[in-house]
């Protein structure tokens, strides 16, 4: 570092003429690198690429005893049946309903929460709050469904509280379609809002303090500083998080719905993924369920590609 530039970085052309170029051993043994990726390549091939061949079932009347190559081909019959099926259109509607509302709330709530948390100056209070709000992210939907079913039951703590406070009759949260939708959305936001603030808090920490000092001199109060400095500074990351979430618009969270729903609320809460599970693995309609899953994956693929292109275009985001 202390040497002068010419000796530290000799240009390649003059160097190679006079002496044997130094080739780093790390450039020579590249077979070692290929060997290091190999396990990941092999496992990905077996458990991700081989199952992709299974999508052929979507164009067949698949019978396990005939196998993938002996079953009867039916072309697009399953897809035609799907699009004429009223129930299918309903579950697509349910999926979009949950996904869109969750997407918006899971963007807005953490954003506002991060802004508010940024105003807390005592770092011990700030860190305690963070510890508590990040926690629900690590709980599984099995556990949360168990807790919620208990708390929201007819004799559960929530209904007891509501009866005491408002004098109303117990609400059948898990049996009444619209209440159930509310429970699904609120519990999802409750579980994830804290964890989603991490990215915003990081961006907040990166805002140049001199901007605030300048605003202070100009006599801007905190609200104006937030409006004209903080929020614009967070825009790029908000755009990235928002556009990347677009790709998941057909994912309404299988784990959550699967663990919380029951046949009473199918009409309001059944989503594409839970439908595929019941049709395919429980009723054995392998081909039809695969067709539904394939259509979903295909549309998701297009949405993901679009969202990454948007994120790249507007926020210069690259995945790797």
């Amino acid at each position: 570092m202390n040497q002068t530039v010419p000796t530290a970085q000799p240009s390649k052309s003059t160097n190679t003429k006079h002496m044997k170029p130094f080739v780093s051993p790390l450039r020579k043994h590249t077979w070692m690198l290929h060997l290091m990726v190999l396990p990941a390549v092999v496992f990905t091939f077996i458990f991700a690429y081989i199952p992709m061949s299974g999508i052929l079932m979507a164009f067949q009347h698949y019978k396990p005893k005939h196998g993938l190559f002996g079953s009867e081909w039916v072309g697009l019959e399953h897809f035609r049946y799907m699009l004429q099926n009223d129930y299918f259109l309903q579950i697509v509607g349910n999926t979009l309903f949950f996904a869109v509302i969750k997407m918006v709330l899971n963007l807005v709530v953490p954003f506002v929460f991060a802004l508010l948390l940024n105003e807390v100056r005592k770092s011990i209070i700030k860190r305690s709050i963070q510890t508590l709000v990040y926690l629900p992210h690590f709980l599984s939907w099995v556990v949360l469904a168990g807790i919620l079913m208990d708390m929201l039951s007819q004799t559960g703590i929530v209904n007891q509280f509501l009866t005491w406070l408002l004098g109303i009759k117990p609400i059948f949260f898990f049996g009444e379609g619209n209440w159930f939708r509310g429970v699904v959305i609120v519990s999802d936001v409750w579980k994830e809002f804290g964890f989603s603030t991490i990215v915003f808090l990081a961006a907040l920490a990166g805002v140049n303090p001199s901007l605030y000092e300048a605003a202070e001199v100009d006599g801007a109060n905190r609200w104006r500083q937030t409006l004209h400095i903080t929020i614009p500074a967070l825009m790029p990351i908000l755009i990235v998080v928002g556009t990347l979430a677009l790709g998941g618009v057909l994912n309404a969270n299988f784990d959550q719905i699967f663990n919380m729903y029951n046949s009473l609320v199918y009409d309001k809460a059944d989503i594409i993924d839970t439908f595929v599970y019941r049709e395919g693995l429980l009723s054995g309609q392998f081909s039809f369920a695969t067709a539904v899953g394939l259509l979903k994956s295909f549309i998701s693929l297009i949405l993901i590609v679009i969202s990454y292109l948007l994120a790249y275009r507007f926020a210069n985001y690259r995945i790797f």
Binding site: A48, P51, M52, G54, I55, P64, F286, T290
Partner: peptide, 11 residues
């Protein structure tokens, strides 16, 4: 993109 749960189960 993925094959989905049913081909995975069969594998």
């Amino acid at each position: 993109f993925s094959g989905g749960i049913i081909p995975g189960y069969m594998l």
